[in-house]
């Protein structure tokens, strides 16, 4: 070990020590001080009842399958619609001006309107026009609402990615005699998509949580199931169950996104 390495090792030991000490102190404060509060037993009974936790967990996990299913079929649709909207917004040809306008309106509207309103409007409104069962299912139209909203965000992220590809790349492709669509498909998009993977991972994590909003129009997913238990048992522990289940999914996803983002930053520098 040379002089600098020794110094850095010392520094590292110090920072680990400080981090560990402060974490332990904080946890100790929570574990020791909070139960000393006069209302703790009441709060514990309402939010952290082990009995309620175990009793509700199986049904809560079952309800979480609904979240996963909606998430699973929404994601590819969002990718497709988002890509289409991004391409519509990025088209250069003057003949496709209406497409560009349509793409812009789509993106502005669905990014500007609260997700909940879109879900109500499409989830109740479209079936209200008189669609027969099963085509009026809240699962279908709730999904449509989520897909429209998230596609608008994804489209903007993708368009940012497309714009970030240096114009020389396009010129290089065009000068080889490739068509505009080939240039987009083989040269610009692959680079753009790679650059926006981390941003889109964040959208996926947000989507995973927003799937729960479909419960407003009927589907009984995990948050709704928690609400039902809350009412029946007059206890908030089921929400803690839901939080634990969500964290079990989103924390690894977030870590993975950070990892991708760091790797990309390393590659750039």
């Amino acid at each position: 070990m040379n002089r600098r390495e020794k110094y850095e090792a010392r520094q590292r030991r110090w920072s680990i020590l400080i981090a560990a000490a402060s974490t332990i102190a904080t946890l100790a404060a929570i574990v020791i001080l909070v139960p000393m509060a006069p209302g703790w037993s009441r709060v514990q009974q309402s939010f952290f009842s082990g009995e309620v936790f175990l009793k509700t967990l199986p049904k809560m996990l079952e309800a979480f399958l609904v979240d996963i299913a909606i998430f699973a079929w929404s994601t590819p649709l969002i990718a497709i619609v988002g890509l289409a909207a991004a391409l519509a917004r990025s088209t250069r040809s003057p003949g496709l001006f209406p497409l560009r306008v349509f793409g812009t309106i789509f993106v502005d509207v669905f990014r500007g309107v609260p997700v909940v309103l879109v879900i109500y409007l499409i989830g109740f409104g479209v079936p209200g026009l008189g669609l027969p069962r099963p085509w009026n299912s809240p699962y279908i139209w709730g999904t449509v609402a989520l897909v429209l909203t998230y596609s608008a965000y994804v489209a903007e992220i993708l368009r940012g990615g497309i714009d970030s590809v240096h114009p020389s790349q396009r010129a290089a492709g065009i000068s080889l005699g490739l068509s505009e669509s080939d240039v987009m498909r083989y040269i610009v998009l692959p680079q753009a998509v790679r650059r926006v993977v981390p941003a889109n991972m964040n959208m996926l994590i947000a989507l995973q949580k927003d799937v729960a909003l479909l419960s407003f129009i009927g589907p009984v997913e995990i948050l709704r199931q928690a609400g039902v238990y809350k009412s029946l048992l007059a206890n908030f522990t089921p929400y803690v169950v839901a939080a634990v289940v969500f964290l079990a999914v989103t924390v690894p996803a977030t870590r993975y996104t950070d990892y991708l983002m760091n790797r990309q930053n390393d590659a750039r520098s």
């Binding site: 020389s168 790349q169 290089a172 492709g173 065009i174 000068s175 080889l176 005699g177 490739l178």
Partner: peptide, 17 residues
């Protein structure tokens, strides 16, 4: 397109994909 195929060009930078 067909004309560009008959005339190649190489730029200063950002050439390769």
């Amino acid at each position: 397109g067909p004309i560009r195929r008959r005339i190649g060009i190489v730029f200063q930078s950002f050439n390769l994909f």
